Structures are given as structure tokens and as C-alpha cells.
Simulated assay, not measured.
Amino acid sequence: MFRKLYDWTLRQAASPRAEPVLGAISFVESSVFPIPADVLFVPMCLSRPERAMRYALIATVTSVLGGIFGWAIGLWFFDLIAQPVLEFYGKLDAFNALKSETGETAILVMLVTSGLSHLPPMKVVTILSGVVAFDLKLFIISAIIARGGRFYLLAWLLQRHGLAITGFIERRLPWVALVTCLALAGGAFLLKH
């Protein structure tokens, strides 16, 4: 099933309706969809580099709106919607483990790291943020920074370096995410003390 979804997503990159599909996937990826928007975003930027920043804007706006939707699911519809979705994707245990670390700083760090690197998965963190009633304004600001930062940086790199950068990103993304997490944790520590 996941392979079919993945293949369908890749076919959409070449479609004349690629932009609306990118927006839709970016929206649902932040709350329920298992495939990251990158699988559509990257091919679109590579095929039309002059539109990369436009694609970044579409992906950022719809991803943040999808995150707000995930937050609302967690706040008002966890038992009805979120729990079955998390069980379906096998993420309920990860969700429960994250729920035990519900301090505001922990949620903020998870929002930023999931927005930048999908670690932990964005849909889990957005729903968790709603479950613990994380401040919506802070949620939106962190989502804009993390998701916007990710999409705009990726768009700029793909515009500038094209195919050469995709291999670099794929090989080193966990290290980039780790360095980003450490920097964010250090920044949160400094702000708190």
C-alpha cells in the first residue's frame, strides 16, 4: 500500500496539477499522510528550478495549515480520529512515549525538529501538541520557522545545485538533523537559564 502511495506521489510531480497536489500533500502530511511532501517537492523543484521558491511557499503555507489541523485533531478529536490513525501507522507507541515528555520546551523542540527533519514524524507531534493543549500561537510560529526553513532552504539548494545536492541531502540528512537538534537544544537551554 505504501509503495502505491509513494509511486502515485512521484507521478504527480510531472502532472499539470502538481502545485495543488503539492499543497494537498503538504497539508495532509502534517496530520495524517505517511509520505512526506519532499517526494513531490524535490522533483518539482528540479524540473522547474525557476519556480522553486513558489513551491516552497505553497508547501510551507499548506504544511502549517495541516499542522493546525493536526493540532485541532489532538485537542478535540483524539479518540475519534487520531488514535485510530496512529494505530494504523504503528505510531501509537511512539506517540505515548512522546506524550510523557510534554513539557513546553520538549514540545517546542519536537515541533522544530520534526518540521526540519521529520524526526519525530510531524503528524505525531502536531497531534501531541493538541492533546497537551500547546499554545496555538507558539505552535504556528514554530511551524512556520521549521517548515518554512526546511522548504525554502531545500528550494534554494535545489535551485543552486540541482541534482548534485539531492545525493548529498539524502546521505547526510540524519547528521544535519542531529546538528540542528543540538543547536536548538542549546538555544532552549540558554533561553531558559
Rank of each mutant, 00 (worst) to 15 (best):
V179F: 12
V32Y: 07
F33M: 08
L190V: 15
V132R: 13
A72N: 06
R54C: 10
A37W: 03
E19V: 15
L119S: 08
R3N: 10
S31H: 05
E19H: 03
L92W: 00
W76T: 11
V179I: 15
R147G: 10
A24M: 10
S100N: 08
G103F: 13
F95D: 01
V39K: 06
F95S: 02
L154A: 13
I81M: 12
L184D: 04
L57N: 04
F134M: 12
A82K: 08
E104D: 04
A177P: 11
S63C: 11
F168C: 05
F95M: 10
P34K: 06
R150E: 12
I169L: 15
E170A: 12
R150M: 15
N96M: 06
R3Y: 11
Y6P: 00
Q12H: 08
I140D: 00
T62D: 01
F27S: 04
H161F: 11
A106G: 11
A18M: 09
K91Y: 05
V132C: 11
F78I: 00
F139M: 11
F69S: 03
T180A: 15
F168G: 03
L108K: 05
I25S: 09
E87G: 03
A133F: 09
L182F: 10
C181F: 15
A164F: 02
L154I: 11
F77L: 10
T166R: 05
F139K: 14
L191A: 10
G167Q: 08
I58C: 12
D93C: 02
H193M: 09
V112L: 11
R3F: 08
L138Y: 04
M53F: 09
L5C: 10
W71T: 06
G162T: 00
M110C: 13
L98H: 06
T60K: 08
F88Y: 07
M122N: 11
L86V: 00
L182H: 07
I81C: 10
T166F: 01
I141H: 03
V64F: 01
A177F: 15
S63E: 01
L65V: 00
I58H: 03
